[in-house]
């Protein structure tokens, strides 16, 4: 597992991604993992080993709640759902993120 060309996530970015993915529907860890891969292709490197602690951190901060449900393949899985606080947090962080990336981008392009 060398670093290759994949981008290491910035601190807190993984949590932002998770919140965003949970915005439309409750998902389990496997689902989230697949979607990150799907959406970002092979650019962003996320391991399950860091995904699950992130989920648990979000749960401890009450930004998501977890529920046991049945997955598509009829197996018990833990599904995470965004809470109201989670939604608010997502909005705030997305704004910050866009401001930040906007600023970085404008420096990269114009400076």
């Amino acid at each position: 597992m060398n670093k290759e060309k994949k981008t290491e996530l910035l601190q807190g970015t993984l949590e932002l991604l998770i919140l965003r993915l949970l915005q439309s529907e409750p998902l389990n860890g496997w689902d989230i993992m697949q979607r990150i891969r799907l959406v970002s292709g092979a650019v962003i490197k996320v391991s399950a080993g860091s995904l699950y602690p992130a989920l648990h951190r979000l749960e401890a901060r009450r930004l998501v709640v977890a529920e046991w449900d049945v997955s598509e393949k009829n197996r018990r899985a833990k599904f995470y759902k965004l809470t109201a606080a989670g939604r608010k947090q997502l909005e705030a962080e997305r704004e910050t993120w866009e401001r930040f990336t906007g600023a970085v981008a404008s420096i990269l392009h114009n400076a």
Binding site: M1, S47, A48, G49, S50, Y52, P53, A54, H56, R57, E59, A60
Partner: peptide, 15 residues
Amino acid sequence: FGGVEQAKEQCRDAR
């Protein structure tokens, strides 16, 4: 997966 036991420990810590 990248270190199941470490992940567990981190999950416990996270709680």
